[in-house]
């Protein structure tokens, strides 16, 4: 396996608060990494740096062998590199339809009257339909506003958006927090399937059984530093919990 993502001593502060105090770890291609930590440990900030919403202050992040050029890095660049994130609140535009949400920021266009680029709705709807079908999800129509769908269906839309553009890394932020038991298994299967395809996954979750079920490795963040970096097979829930709460 080759290394996809390397973080070297990443730091970040918001005003007087030092949120990340030198975070280093690496992620192999096709590896599922469980990222754990209490609220405020710095998980979200770290992920938002990787996806280009925030810049970092010190340190370096290397993706696919190339340093990410902060502070120019932004969400568009991150997606172009193959970094996708499924947000806990899903980040969907609820009044827009399913197809619009899946292709948000990447709409296919054609030239109306030969010069005017317009969104190719037919192409988008066909591709959106296919993306939803690949996930095995059931949605009445890709022309429905996302806000009219159930929670599980909305999550399928968010997942489809992350997977449609050949990602190399998929970050899932609490993907199972709001789901029914059957749907949780679906999401975990999805993580395994991504791994089979050589896609790396960072799974952020408070539900330890989920993380232990699918991850290859577990990293625990505490107060802005990595306090544990262990192979899932060689650790235990008790051990991980101890790291999370700082009992070690």
């Amino acid at each position: 396996m080759s290394t996809l993502l390397e973080l070297h001593n990443v730091t970040k502060r918001f005003g007087p608060v030092e949120v990340l105090k030198g975070v280093s770890f690496s992620l192999e291609a096709g590896e599922i990494l469980g990222l754990l930590g209490d609220n405020g440990a710095g998980k979200s900030t770290l992920m938002k740096i990787i996806t280009g919403i925030y810049s970092l202050e010190g340190g370096e992040i290397i993706f696919s062998g190339k340093p990410i050029p902060y502070p120019q890095h932004n969400p568009r660049e991150a997606r172009a590199l193959g970094i996708e994130m499924i947000y806990q609140d899903l980040a969907l535009a609820k009044q827009q339809d399913v197809a619009a949400n899946i292709f948000l920021g990447q709409e296919p266009t054609y030239r109306f009257l030969g010069f005017w680029p317009m969104i190719d709705k037919a192409k988008m709807e066909t591709a959106a339909q296919a993306a939803i079908a690949r996930l095995g999800a059931r949605i009445p129509s890709v022309k429905y506003p996302v806000g009219q769908l159930s929670g599980g269906q909305q999550q399928s839309v968010a997942i489809a958006r992350a997977l449609t553009f050949n990602p190399k890394l998929v970050i899932m932020d609490e993907p199972t927090a709001a789901l029914a038991v059957r749907e949780v298994e679906h999401v975990l299967d999805l993580a395994r399937e991504l791994k089979r395809q050589g896609i790396s996954v960072i799974l952020i979750s408070h539900r330890l059984p989920d993380v232990f079920a699918v991850s290859d490795r577990i990293i625990v963040l505490r107060q802005g530093t990595v306090v544990a970096d262990e192979h899932t097979a060689q650790t235990s829930m008790n051990n991980v919990v101890a790291h999370i709460v700082g009992a070690h």
Binding site: I53, M85, Q96, A100, N101, E107, I119
Partner: peptide, 18 residues
């Protein structure tokens, strides 16, 4: 489309690279 999405959910617009 981006005009509508920004009004719908600005965060969705940001994270998808708009």
């Amino acid at each position: 489309r981006y005009t509508l999405v920004i009004g719908d959910n600005e965060m969705a617009a940001r994270v998808t690279g708009i």
